[in-house]
Structure formats: structure tokens, C-alpha cells
Design a protein around this nucleic acid. Structure first.
Lengths: 146, 146
DNA sequence: ATTAAAGTGTACCAAAAAGGTATAGATTTG
DNA sequence: CAAATCTATACCTTTTTGGTACACTTTAAT
């Protein structure tokens, strides 16, 4: 039940980009996030694929948020890195656990997993970066919704 | 963000034991849960270590729940197998992220992780096996609390 | 008592995932 | 053109996961 270390790093990288506003190069992000530069770049590419980050090539280039911070949330960032938030493979449509309506034998847990999963995903999507980068953000205000 | 396959199996094994009430041997549990017998035994040992399951040795022996089904919940079972439910290693006391009150640099996320984690754990502990084994259990009744 | 049917304990192993690195190339600014 | 910076693919190592082997102990039934 852990997000990967890579997703954890990604949250911190997105935080830096959101806080900064403009372009930041990979070296700067690497230093500030405490992640090696190559690994930082790998993470940035996944964030770009997820539409969260954009880049400018060439000298004086760098990375920036590709969307409004209020549209970027924990769920989006984590899913860009780790893939869908799914607490059991029984929720994976590829896996094909279709016994949802039939609470017999081994799939007694399908609906329970599904609802729990939705709850987790919903909470993660509540944490948007416009709030997180606010210096005076009221932790309680975000978290009491949980 | 997944529980392990082993924890998933464990939930189904505990379900069988709770549903049955009395002793069931490893072979029977293995067949009904769809898990190899050796792996079933490995899981049962972790459940015993967590105080969830007890055993009777010798011929006609087997395993049974060691606690009232209403005291056995998803969180307990998952933690007996996978260890503490922690969405980030920053929540692990061994890891020593002590910057909780100091929302600077990389630990901007500590309080957010902590609260989200508590929410997940609380929801898991809501799903107790007395309810799950009830044939007529009202899925909505458990899940709408989520 | 003996034997067969259970559970016990430790250790081992292979595959997959996670975490991280290397190298060669493309683009832009000055 | 040269330096700064991003792009793309592939590779490698370590850890975790999932699962197995084997020798041993306990109990029930005969």
C-alpha cells in the first residue's frame, strides 16, 4: 500500500514547478528535489506524457507546469508515474474479474475494493497544487475534508 | 498503491474461516481460496502471528479464527501480511521524516500523507468480517459510510 | 504402539518490479 | 558554431514478491 518512491519524487518536482511558476531546468529541479538528475529527467518525461508538465528545448530551456495548478492534484501526479490507483488487481479490467454482482466465493471483495478504491482516489484528487503551494495554506482546511 | 497478492489471498482465507466457524485444514482452505497449499500455509502462519488465526495440531487438526469476526477487519488482515498500511515511506518512523511541523522543501507532503493514510486505514478497519460473511449483507450499508 | 493425518520452522529460489544509469542524438540561444 | 538543454531508447542492479522444499513435531484412530 505504498506509492512508489518515484511518485513521491514526482509530487515534490511538481510542487517546485507549481511554486516557481515559470521554467526550471532539470539540474535545478534535481538539486531542489534531492533526486539524481537522470532520474529527475525520467520522472519529468512521465509527467509530460500525463499532460502535467511541458518543456522548452535548447539552451535556456527547461520544464514548467502544463496546466493550471488548480487542475493538478495528487491523484493525477501519482497516476502519471505509477499508473492507475488500484488497491487490488481484481479491480483491473485487464485482469477481468467480472464477478461484481455475484458475491460468491473468491470475489466477495470486489465491491468492497471498488468502493474503498474510489474513496482513496477521490481524496487524492482533492489535494490540488494551487492549495499546496500556498505558503499560508491551512492544512486543516484541506485535510478536514478527508 | 496495491495490497500484495498475498494479502488479497489472506482476505479470502479469513473469509472462509469466518464463514465456516470451526476448523478447516490447509488443504481445504487452499482448494477453496484457489491458492497452492504451501503458500496457503505460509499465509496462515502470518495470520497466526497477527492473532487472527489459531491452529490445532495433529490428525483432524486445522485452522480457525482466533478472534470474534466482529474484531477482525480488512486493516488487521492486510497488516498481518504486508505490514503497516503506509502510503509513503515518509510516514515510516524508522525512516525518520520528522519535519512534520515544518512544511519546508521536501516535506511539504508529510501532513497530507499522514491524514490521507489515516483515512484509508480507518476505512479499512470499518470492514469487519462479521458483516462480510453475512449472506444478506447490505453492501450499500457498509460502503455508504465510505 | 504404530501409523497416517495434520501442523511447524527454516531456508531457499525464480520472476517481476523498482530504482537508477548510460549513451547517443536533437534543438535552441548567443 | 558552440554551449546549454531537452529527447529517446535501452540497459543494469537491487529489492520485493510469489512461491517451493524439506525435515520435523504433534495428535487421532486403530
Amino acid at each position: 500500500m505504498r506509492i512508489t518512491q518515484e511518485a513521491d519524487y514526482a509530487l515534490r518536482i511538481v510542487y517546485l514547478l507549481a511554486k516557481n511558476g515559470g521554467l526550471l531546468d532539470a539540474a535545478t529541479l534535481s538539486q531542489n528535489a534531492g533526486v539524481t538528475e537522470r532520474f529527475t529527467v525520467k520522472i519529468l518525461r512521465k509527467l509530460m506524457a500525463g499532460g502535467i508538465v511541458g518543456s522548452k528545448m535548447g539552451a535556456r530551456g527547461g520544464y514548467s507546469l502544463a496546466d493550471d495548478p488548480k487542475n493538478v492534484n495528487m491523484q493525477r501526479v501519482i497516476e502519471a508515474i505509477d499508473g492507475p490507483v488500484e488497491i487490488s488487481k481484481c479491480l483491473d479490467s485487464e485482469y477481468g474479474c467480472t464477478r461484481m454482482g455475484d458475491r460468491k466465493s473468491e470475489c466477495t471483495f470486489h465491491l468492497i475494493f471498488a468502493k474503498l478504491n474510489k474513496s482513496i482516489a477521490d481524496k487524492m484528487s482533492t489535494v490540488t497544487f494551487d492549495t499546496v503551494i500556498d505558503d499560508d495554506f491551512d492544512v486543516a482546511a484541506i485535510l478536514e475534508k478527508f
